[in-house]
Design a protein around this nucleic acid. Structure first.
Lengths: 166, 166
DNA sequence: CAGAAATGCTTGTAGATACAACTATTGCCA
DNA sequence: TGGCAATAGTTGTATCTACAAGCATTTCTG
Protein backbone atom coordinates (compact mmCIF):
# COMPACT_ATOMS: atom_id res chain seq x y z
CA UNK A 1 0.00 0.00 0.00
CA UNK A 2 0.97 3.58 0.01
CA UNK A 3 3.51 4.38 2.62
CA UNK A 4 5.26 7.43 1.41
CA UNK A 5 7.50 9.03 3.95
CA UNK A 6 6.06 12.45 4.35
CA UNK A 7 9.15 14.43 5.03
CA UNK A 8 7.42 17.09 7.03
CA UNK A 9 9.84 16.50 9.81
CA UNK A 10 9.94 19.74 11.75
CA UNK A 11 6.40 20.28 12.82
CA UNK A 12 3.91 19.66 15.57
CA UNK A 13 2.94 16.07 15.99
CA UNK A 14 0.80 15.17 13.10
CA UNK A 15 -1.06 12.17 14.42
CA UNK A 16 -4.79 12.33 13.86
CA UNK A 17 -6.35 14.47 16.30
CA UNK A 18 -9.48 14.07 18.26
CA UNK A 19 -8.11 16.44 20.81
CA UNK A 20 -4.93 17.27 22.56
CA UNK A 21 -5.93 15.93 25.93
CA UNK A 22 -4.53 12.64 27.19
CA UNK A 23 -7.96 11.07 26.93
CA UNK A 24 -8.35 12.45 23.46
CA UNK A 25 -5.05 10.89 22.45
CA UNK A 26 -6.17 7.60 23.92
CA UNK A 27 -9.36 7.76 21.88
CA UNK A 28 -7.39 8.55 18.75
CA UNK A 29 -5.18 5.56 19.34
CA UNK A 30 -8.22 3.42 19.99
CA UNK A 31 -9.87 4.48 16.74
CA UNK A 32 -6.79 4.01 14.62
CA UNK A 33 -5.93 0.68 16.16
CA UNK A 34 -9.44 -0.59 15.65
CA UNK A 35 -9.35 0.46 12.02
CA UNK A 36 -5.94 -1.06 11.42
CA UNK A 37 -6.68 -4.40 13.02
CA UNK A 38 -10.08 -4.58 11.42
CA UNK A 39 -8.55 -3.90 8.04
CA UNK A 40 -5.98 -6.60 8.59
CA UNK A 41 -8.63 -9.14 9.48
CA UNK A 42 -10.72 -8.26 6.45
CA UNK A 43 -7.74 -8.65 4.18
CA UNK A 44 -6.88 -12.02 5.63
CA UNK A 45 -10.43 -13.22 5.16
CA UNK A 46 -10.66 -11.92 1.62
CA UNK A 47 -7.40 -13.61 0.77
CA UNK A 48 -8.80 -16.96 1.85
CA UNK A 49 -12.06 -16.43 -0.06
CA UNK A 50 -13.98 -16.16 3.15
CA UNK A 51 -17.00 -13.98 3.81
CA UNK A 52 -16.48 -10.53 5.33
CA UNK A 53 -15.75 -9.89 8.98
CA UNK A 54 -19.30 -9.06 10.08
CA UNK A 55 -20.39 -12.53 9.02
CA UNK A 56 -17.78 -14.04 11.28
CA UNK A 57 -18.90 -11.90 14.16
CA UNK A 58 -22.49 -12.99 13.75
CA UNK A 59 -21.57 -16.66 13.48
CA UNK A 60 -19.24 -16.48 16.45
CA UNK A 61 -21.82 -14.75 18.63
CA UNK A 62 -24.59 -17.16 17.75
CA UNK A 63 -22.33 -20.18 18.13
CA UNK A 64 -21.52 -19.30 21.72
CA UNK A 65 -25.09 -18.61 22.72
CA UNK A 66 -27.13 -21.29 24.47
CA UNK A 67 -28.78 -23.60 21.94
CA UNK A 68 -26.74 -21.84 19.30
CA UNK A 69 -29.39 -19.23 18.72
CA UNK A 70 -29.89 -15.60 19.66
CA UNK A 71 -32.71 -13.10 19.66
CA UNK A 72 -32.28 -10.45 17.00
CA UNK A 73 -32.31 -7.65 19.51
CA UNK A 74 -29.64 -9.17 21.71
CA UNK A 75 -27.51 -9.89 18.69
CA UNK A 76 -27.74 -6.29 17.54
CA UNK A 77 -26.75 -5.09 20.97
CA UNK A 78 -23.76 -7.40 21.23
CA UNK A 79 -22.52 -6.46 17.77
CA UNK A 80 -23.26 -2.79 18.42
CA UNK A 81 -25.16 -2.24 15.20
CA UNK A 82 -28.70 -1.07 14.58
CA UNK A 83 -31.59 -3.47 14.46
CA UNK A 84 -32.43 -2.57 10.91
CA UNK A 85 -28.88 -3.27 9.89
CA UNK A 86 -28.89 -6.59 11.67
CA UNK A 87 -32.08 -7.70 9.94
CA UNK A 88 -30.44 -7.26 6.57
CA UNK A 89 -27.17 -8.77 7.68
CA UNK A 90 -28.94 -11.87 8.95
CA UNK A 91 -30.93 -11.95 5.72
CA UNK A 92 -27.71 -12.46 3.82
CA UNK A 93 -26.52 -15.20 6.13
CA UNK A 94 -29.88 -16.92 5.84
CA UNK A 95 -29.71 -16.72 2.08
CA UNK A 96 -26.26 -18.27 2.29
CA UNK A 97 -27.80 -21.06 4.37
CA UNK A 98 -25.51 -20.44 7.29
CA UNK A 99 -28.32 -19.38 9.63
CA UNK A 100 -32.04 -19.92 9.81
CA UNK A 101 -34.76 -17.91 11.46
CA UNK A 102 -36.68 -19.63 14.19
CA UNK A 103 -39.46 -18.28 16.31
CA UNK A 104 -40.49 -18.16 19.92
CA UNK A 105 -43.54 -20.10 21.02
CA UNK A 106 -44.40 -17.91 23.96
CA UNK A 107 -43.75 -14.51 22.35
CA UNK A 108 -44.54 -14.28 18.70
CA UNK A 109 -42.71 -11.01 18.28
CA UNK A 110 -39.27 -12.44 18.84
CA UNK A 111 -37.32 -14.26 16.21
CA UNK A 112 -34.06 -16.07 16.66
CA UNK A 113 -31.05 -16.26 14.44
CA UNK A 114 -30.17 -19.93 14.68
CA UNK A 115 -26.93 -21.52 13.60
CA UNK A 116 -27.09 -24.14 10.86
CA UNK A 117 -24.51 -26.91 10.46
CA UNK A 118 -23.04 -25.17 7.45
CA UNK A 119 -22.61 -22.06 9.55
CA UNK A 120 -20.87 -23.95 12.32
CA UNK A 121 -18.65 -25.59 9.76
CA UNK A 122 -17.70 -22.31 8.13
CA UNK A 123 -17.01 -20.81 11.53
CA UNK A 124 -14.55 -23.59 12.28
CA UNK A 125 -12.72 -22.76 9.08
CA UNK A 126 -12.65 -19.04 9.71
CA UNK A 127 -11.65 -19.07 13.33
CA UNK A 128 -8.00 -20.05 12.88
CA UNK A 129 -7.56 -17.28 10.33
CA UNK A 130 -8.92 -14.70 12.74
CA UNK A 131 -7.06 -16.07 15.73
CA UNK A 132 -3.84 -16.16 13.77
CA UNK A 133 -4.09 -12.56 12.69
CA UNK A 134 -4.98 -11.46 16.18
CA UNK A 135 -1.97 -13.24 17.57
CA UNK A 136 0.23 -11.35 15.17
CA UNK A 137 -1.30 -8.05 16.16
CA UNK A 138 -1.57 -8.58 19.90
CA UNK A 139 0.73 -11.32 20.98
CA UNK A 140 3.99 -9.66 20.03
CA UNK A 141 3.86 -7.01 22.70
CA UNK A 142 1.13 -8.13 25.04
CA UNK A 143 1.36 -10.91 27.55
CA UNK A 144 -1.77 -12.79 28.45
CA UNK A 145 -2.05 -10.77 31.62
CA UNK A 146 -1.62 -7.52 29.78
CA UNK A 147 -4.29 -8.59 27.34
CA UNK A 148 -6.68 -9.24 30.19
CA UNK A 149 -5.82 -5.93 31.73
CA UNK A 150 -6.46 -4.20 28.42
CA UNK A 151 -9.80 -5.92 28.11
CA UNK A 152 -10.86 -4.79 31.55
CA UNK A 153 -9.79 -1.23 30.91
CA UNK A 154 -11.69 -1.12 27.65
CA UNK A 155 -14.79 -2.69 29.15
CA UNK A 156 -14.75 -0.01 31.80
CA UNK A 157 -14.61 2.70 29.20
CA UNK A 158 -17.42 1.07 27.29
CA UNK A 159 -19.61 0.93 30.36
CA UNK A 160 -19.13 4.64 30.88
CA UNK A 161 -19.83 5.35 27.25
CA UNK A 162 -23.10 3.46 27.49
CA UNK A 163 -23.99 5.00 30.83
CA UNK A 164 -25.55 8.15 29.50
CA UNK A 165 -27.49 6.33 26.85
CA UNK A 166 -29.30 3.92 29.09
CA UNK B 1 -38.35 6.12 17.31
CA UNK B 2 -34.96 5.26 16.02
CA UNK B 3 -33.50 1.86 15.99
CA UNK B 4 -31.07 2.42 18.73
CA UNK B 5 -30.27 0.64 21.92
CA UNK B 6 -33.60 -0.24 23.30
CA UNK B 7 -32.05 -1.33 26.56
CA UNK B 8 -33.31 -4.83 26.76
CA UNK B 9 -34.14 -5.92 30.23
CA UNK B 10 -31.50 -8.60 30.39
CA UNK B 11 -28.27 -6.94 29.45
CA UNK B 12 -26.53 -9.97 28.02
CA UNK B 13 -23.09 -10.39 29.46
CA UNK B 14 -22.83 -12.51 26.43
CA UNK B 15 -19.22 -12.07 25.46
CA UNK B 16 -19.46 -11.69 21.75
CA UNK B 17 -16.93 -13.65 20.31
CA UNK B 18 -14.00 -13.20 18.14
CA UNK B 19 -12.39 -16.11 19.88
CA UNK B 20 -11.94 -17.52 23.31
CA UNK B 21 -8.31 -16.67 23.64
CA UNK B 22 -7.19 -13.78 25.85
CA UNK B 23 -6.11 -11.83 22.83
CA UNK B 24 -9.39 -12.56 21.15
CA UNK B 25 -11.26 -11.24 24.16
CA UNK B 26 -9.13 -8.13 24.10
CA UNK B 27 -9.99 -7.59 20.47
CA UNK B 28 -13.67 -8.09 21.19
CA UNK B 29 -13.52 -5.50 23.93
CA UNK B 30 -11.64 -3.15 21.62
CA UNK B 31 -14.24 -3.49 18.89
CA UNK B 32 -17.22 -3.05 21.18
CA UNK B 33 -15.66 -0.12 23.01
CA UNK B 34 -14.83 1.61 19.77
CA UNK B 35 -18.39 1.15 18.54
CA UNK B 36 -19.93 2.33 21.79
CA UNK B 37 -17.80 5.45 22.15
CA UNK B 38 -18.14 6.27 18.49
CA UNK B 39 -21.90 5.98 18.76
CA UNK B 40 -21.95 8.22 21.78
CA UNK B 41 -19.94 10.88 19.98
CA UNK B 42 -22.19 10.75 16.95
CA UNK B 43 -25.26 11.15 19.09
CA UNK B 44 -23.82 14.13 20.90
CA UNK B 45 -22.94 15.79 17.61
CA UNK B 46 -26.32 15.10 16.08
CA UNK B 47 -28.02 16.50 19.14
CA UNK B 48 -26.19 19.78 18.70
CA UNK B 49 -26.95 19.94 14.97
CA UNK B 50 -23.33 19.40 14.15
CA UNK B 51 -21.93 17.52 11.16
CA UNK B 52 -21.07 13.84 11.55
CA UNK B 53 -17.97 12.55 13.28
CA UNK B 54 -15.84 11.99 10.16
CA UNK B 55 -16.09 15.70 9.40
CA UNK B 56 -14.68 16.49 12.78
CA UNK B 57 -11.83 14.08 12.30
CA UNK B 58 -10.91 15.66 9.00
CA UNK B 59 -11.07 19.16 10.38
CA UNK B 60 -9.09 18.24 13.47
CA UNK B 61 -6.38 16.52 11.46
CA UNK B 62 -6.00 19.36 8.99
CA UNK B 63 -6.07 21.99 11.73
CA UNK B 64 -3.07 20.48 13.46
CA UNK B 65 -1.03 20.07 10.33
CA UNK B 66 1.59 22.65 9.41
CA UNK B 67 0.00 25.52 7.47
CA UNK B 68 -3.35 23.96 8.24
CA UNK B 69 -3.28 21.83 5.16
CA UNK B 70 -2.63 18.18 4.40
CA UNK B 71 -1.96 16.08 1.35
CA UNK B 72 -4.88 13.86 0.46
CA UNK B 73 -2.82 10.72 0.77
CA UNK B 74 -1.51 11.55 4.21
CA UNK B 75 -4.96 12.44 5.36
CA UNK B 76 -6.35 9.12 4.16
CA UNK B 77 -3.59 7.29 5.97
CA UNK B 78 -4.12 9.13 9.23
CA UNK B 79 -7.87 8.60 9.15
CA UNK B 80 -7.41 4.99 8.05
CA UNK B 81 -9.84 5.19 5.17
CA UNK B 82 -9.39 4.58 1.45
CA UNK B 83 -8.27 7.31 -0.88
CA UNK B 84 -11.39 7.12 -2.93
CA UNK B 85 -13.47 7.51 0.18
CA UNK B 86 -11.43 10.48 1.29
CA UNK B 87 -11.81 12.25 -2.05
CA UNK B 88 -15.57 12.17 -1.67
CA UNK B 89 -15.49 13.06 2.00
CA UNK B 90 -13.36 16.11 1.27
CA UNK B 91 -15.67 16.94 -1.63
CA UNK B 92 -18.48 17.35 0.88
CA UNK B 93 -16.45 19.53 3.19
CA UNK B 94 -15.40 21.67 0.25
CA UNK B 95 -19.00 22.04 -0.83
CA UNK B 96 -19.80 23.13 2.72
CA UNK B 97 -17.02 25.70 2.41
CA UNK B 98 -15.11 24.35 5.37
CA UNK B 99 -12.11 23.29 3.30
CA UNK B 100 -10.64 24.21 -0.03
CA UNK B 101 -8.39 22.32 -2.37
CA UNK B 102 -5.01 23.79 -3.03
CA UNK B 103 -2.23 22.48 -5.18
CA UNK B 104 1.45 21.91 -5.03
CA UNK B 105 3.74 23.97 -7.19
CA UNK B 106 6.53 21.47 -7.41
CA UNK B 107 4.46 18.33 -7.89
CA UNK B 108 1.28 18.78 -9.80
CA UNK B 109 -0.09 15.41 -8.77
CA UNK B 110 -0.61 16.30 -5.17
CA UNK B 111 -3.51 18.27 -3.87
CA UNK B 112 -3.97 19.60 -0.39
CA UNK B 113 -7.05 19.80 1.76
CA UNK B 114 -6.70 23.24 3.26
CA UNK B 115 -8.63 24.59 6.20
CA UNK B 116 -10.85 27.61 5.64
CA UNK B 117 -11.78 30.07 8.37
CA UNK B 118 -15.30 28.66 8.53
CA UNK B 119 -13.81 25.22 9.07
CA UNK B 120 -11.59 26.43 11.87
CA UNK B 121 -14.54 28.16 13.42
CA UNK B 122 -16.75 25.09 13.26
CA UNK B 123 -13.96 23.01 14.71
CA UNK B 124 -13.77 25.30 17.71
CA UNK B 125 -17.46 24.77 18.28
CA UNK B 126 -17.31 21.02 17.92
CA UNK B 127 -14.23 20.36 19.99
CA UNK B 128 -15.75 20.94 23.42
CA UNK B 129 -18.60 18.59 22.57
CA UNK B 130 -16.17 15.84 21.65
CA UNK B 131 -13.82 16.49 24.52
CA UNK B 132 -16.72 16.51 26.95
CA UNK B 133 -18.06 13.19 25.79
CA UNK B 134 -14.61 11.66 25.85
CA UNK B 135 -14.09 12.82 29.40
CA UNK B 136 -17.29 11.08 30.40
CA UNK B 137 -16.23 7.88 28.74
CA UNK B 138 -12.59 7.84 29.74
CA UNK B 139 -12.02 10.07 32.68
CA UNK B 140 -14.18 8.22 35.16
CA UNK B 141 -11.93 5.24 35.45
CA UNK B 142 -8.71 6.26 33.81
CA UNK B 143 -6.11 8.54 35.26
CA UNK B 144 -4.00 10.58 32.91
CA UNK B 145 -1.17 8.13 33.31
CA UNK B 146 -3.43 5.20 32.62
CA UNK B 147 -4.71 6.95 29.53
CA UNK B 148 -1.17 7.41 28.28
CA UNK B 149 -0.39 3.81 29.04
CA UNK B 150 -3.46 2.73 27.14
CA UNK B 151 -2.45 4.84 24.20
CA UNK B 152 0.98 3.30 24.10
CA UNK B 153 -0.38 -0.19 24.31
CA UNK B 154 -2.81 0.44 21.49
CA UNK B 155 -0.19 2.08 19.32
CA UNK B 156 1.98 -0.98 19.78
CA UNK B 157 -0.82 -3.22 18.64
CA UNK B 158 -1.46 -0.99 15.67
CA UNK B 159 2.14 -1.11 14.61
CA UNK B 160 2.04 -4.89 14.63
CA UNK B 161 -1.20 -4.92 12.73
CA UNK B 162 0.34 -2.77 10.04
CA UNK B 163 3.59 -4.70 10.02
CA UNK B 164 2.47 -7.45 7.70
CA UNK B 165 0.84 -5.04 5.31
CA UNK B 166 3.87 -2.94 4.59
C1' DC C 1 15.80 11.31 -24.14
C1' DA C 2 12.06 7.95 -24.98
C1' DG C 3 9.10 4.62 -22.88
C1' DA C 4 7.90 1.89 -18.96
C1' DA C 5 6.87 1.91 -14.11
C1' DA C 6 5.42 4.25 -10.06
C1' DT C 7 2.90 7.80 -7.64
C1' DG C 8 -1.17 10.86 -6.43
C1' DC C 9 -5.63 11.52 -6.88
C1' DT C 10 -10.44 11.05 -8.92
C1' DT C 11 -14.55 8.65 -10.74
C1' DG C 12 -18.03 4.85 -11.56
C1' DT C 13 -20.41 1.32 -9.48
C1' DA C 14 -21.97 -1.93 -6.19
C1' DG C 15 -22.71 -3.15 -1.49
C1' DA C 16 -23.58 -2.09 3.21
C1' DT C 17 -25.23 1.02 7.12
C1' DA C 18 -28.11 4.15 9.54
C1' DC C 19 -32.40 6.45 10.23
C1' DA C 20 -37.23 6.72 10.18
C1' DA C 21 -41.63 4.88 9.36
C1' DC C 22 -44.31 0.76 9.56
C1' DT C 23 -46.59 -3.89 11.15
C1' DA C 24 -47.43 -7.22 14.59
C1' DT C 25 -47.62 -8.84 19.24
C1' DT C 26 -47.62 -8.24 24.12
C1' DG C 27 -48.26 -5.79 28.59
C1' DC C 28 -50.50 -2.49 31.45
C1' DC C 29 -54.32 -0.33 33.71
C1' DA C 30 -58.63 1.92 34.17
C1' DT D 1 -62.45 -6.36 28.74
C1' DG D 2 -61.13 -2.31 25.78
C1' DG D 3 -57.65 0.59 24.51
C1' DC D 4 -53.19 2.81 24.76
C1' DA D 5 -48.37 2.32 25.30
C1' DA D 6 -44.28 -0.45 24.94
C1' DT D 7 -41.64 -4.01 22.68
C1' DA D 8 -39.66 -6.90 18.65
C1' DG D 9 -38.61 -6.95 14.01
C1' DT D 10 -38.88 -5.56 9.19
C1' DT D 11 -38.83 -2.45 5.21
C1' DG D 12 -37.91 1.85 2.30
C1' DT D 13 -34.80 5.42 1.36
C1' DA D 14 -30.72 8.10 1.35
C1' DT D 15 -26.03 8.22 2.38
C1' DC D 16 -21.66 6.59 2.86
C1' DT D 17 -17.77 3.38 1.96
C1' DA D 18 -14.84 0.30 -0.44
C1' DC D 19 -13.10 -1.58 -4.66
C1' DA D 20 -11.39 -1.33 -9.17
C1' DA D 21 -10.48 1.13 -13.19
C1' DG D 22 -8.91 5.42 -15.03
C1' DC D 23 -6.23 9.89 -15.88
C1' DA D 24 -2.39 12.97 -15.07
C1' DT D 25 2.19 13.69 -13.50
C1' DT D 26 6.64 12.27 -12.02
C1' DT D 27 10.56 9.08 -11.70
C1' DC D 28 13.35 5.44 -13.14
C1' DT D 29 16.15 2.97 -16.65
C1' DG D 30 18.27 1.57 -20.87
Amino acid sequence: MSDQATATSTAPRNEACPANTPHGEAWGALARTHAAVSQRLQEALAQGDFPPLPWYEVLAAVAEAPEQRMRMGDLAEVLVITRGGLTKLVDRLVKAELLERTFCETDRRVSYATLLPAGASLLREMRPVIVGELEIAFSANLSVEQANELRETLDGVRDNACAGVL
